[in-house]
Amino acid sequence: MCNWPNVTLFRLNMALLLLFGSLLLLSRAAQGSNTSIPLVIWHGMGDNCCNPMSMGGIKKMVEAELPGIYVLSLMIGKNIAEDTESGFFRDVNDQVAFACDIIAKDPKLKAGYNAMGFSQGAQFLRAVAQRCPNPPMKTLISVGGQHQGVYGLPRCPGESSHICDWIRKALNSGAYTDAVQKHLVQAQYWHDPLNDDLYKQHSLFLADINQERVVNETYKKNLMTLEKFVMVKFLKDTVVDPVISEWFGFFKTGQAKETETLQQSALYTEDRLGLAQMDKAGKLVFLGTDGDHLQFTQEWFNAKLIPFLR
């Protein structure tokens, strides 16, 4: 004999369970597509936003590991050719302002984003963090970035060797002349330890973001809002001189042989940029990889860097 009220109640409970389960799955799917913080990436010298062998490949690697993530690869200029040229010949301060404008106008970044810069793109993104706090940058990953600049260009990357030769000659003949500073990107993070006063007076970009002339408290406050500042050094780097610049170290002032770590520098001991406080708070991460400049495996990238993007 059938108990119709019990059967009806059973069916109703099953329907409710199925409905609840469906809603739960939809909710989890929606969360899965939106839980990853957006990522902004900036390429290095001689590269561009969309090269399938470099930034395009990085974008795909990140998207494969973090399905649903929004990745913006910055194009500085109207097209790929202009973007590539900007890495050599466009005023860095203008490039940073251009990037800030792109980021501020992107509705997908309004709640905040992580950033990953490659080679010179890393110090450019640090300038974005210091100068443009809205929307907020959460984690900055510097992959081979030269945060104390360079004093030498032993192996200039890029497709055009004659451009690299011309850059070397220009830097050696007068890195701190107005014409070279305004029109050559690499001069704007050229750091001559033998002419420290000249560097501090005439460096249009690096001396400013590294607080070499005056301490801009806004720069300091903005950088300190980062949740993590990750710096990757390539232990067999033949491009960056000195390679310790990738961990914010540099040559000791007055000579070009002995280096000092970030923690030994006046920038840290005087805490002009807030890095000492960030270090004590566990916000600074120093990673090393056994390769030449920007040479790493997908396995290393996924194991060491992807966790900072989750």
Rank of each mutant, 00 (worst) to 15 (best):
residue 203 S to E: 11
residue 203 S to N: 14
residue 203 S to L: 10
residue 203 S to G: 08
residue 204 L to F: 07
residue 204 L to R: 09
residue 205 F to G: 02
residue 205 F to T: 12
residue 205 F to Q: 07
residue 206 L to E: 06
residue 208 D to T: 08
residue 209 I to A: 09
residue 209 I to Q: 12
residue 209 I to W: 13
residue 210 N to K: 05
residue 212 E to A: 08
residue 212 E to P: 02
residue 213 R to C: 00
residue 213 R to E: 02
residue 213 R to P: 00
residue 214 V to G: 12
residue 215 V to T: 13
residue 215 V to R: 03
residue 216 N to L: 03
residue 216 N to A: 00
residue 216 N to S: 01
residue 217 E to I: 04
residue 217 E to K: 13
residue 217 E to P: 05
residue 218 T to P: 01
residue 219 Y to L: 04
residue 219 Y to I: 05
residue 221 K to D: 09
residue 222 N to E: 08
residue 222 N to A: 01
residue 222 N to I: 12
residue 222 N to L: 01
residue 223 L to Q: 04
residue 224 M to E: 08
residue 224 M to K: 05
residue 224 M to H: 03
residue 226 L to F: 06
residue 227 E to Q: 15
residue 227 E to G: 07
residue 227 E to S: 11
residue 228 K to M: 01
residue 229 F to N: 06
residue 229 F to R: 09
residue 229 F to D: 07
residue 230 V to L: 09
residue 231 M to N: 06
residue 231 M to I: 06
residue 231 M to Y: 04
residue 231 M to V: 02
residue 233 K to Y: 04
residue 233 K to T: 14
residue 234 F to I: 02
residue 234 F to Y: 11
residue 236 K to R: 13
residue 236 K to T: 06
residue 236 K to W: 05
residue 237 D to G: 01
residue 237 D to E: 09
residue 238 T to K: 15
residue 238 T to N: 13
residue 239 V to T: 05
residue 240 V to A: 14
residue 240 V to G: 09
residue 241 D to N: 15
residue 242 P to D: 04
residue 244 I to Q: 00
residue 244 I to E: 05
residue 245 S to R: 03
residue 245 S to Q: 00
residue 245 S to D: 04
residue 245 S to T: 03
residue 245 S to H: 01
residue 246 E to P: 00
residue 247 W to T: 15
residue 248 F to C: 10
residue 248 F to G: 05
residue 248 F to Q: 09
residue 248 F to H: 13
residue 248 F to L: 14
residue 248 F to D: 11
residue 250 F to G: 11
residue 251 F to I: 09
residue 251 F to E: 06
residue 252 K to P: 06
residue 252 K to C: 10
residue 255 Q to N: 06
residue 255 Q to D: 11
residue 256 A to Y: 06
residue 256 A to G: 10
residue 256 A to C: 12
residue 256 A to Q: 10
residue 256 A to P: 04
residue 257 K to A: 10
residue 258 E to L: 15
residue 259 T to C: 13
residue 260 E to H: 10
residue 261 T to H: 11
residue 261 T to Q: 14
residue 261 T to M: 12
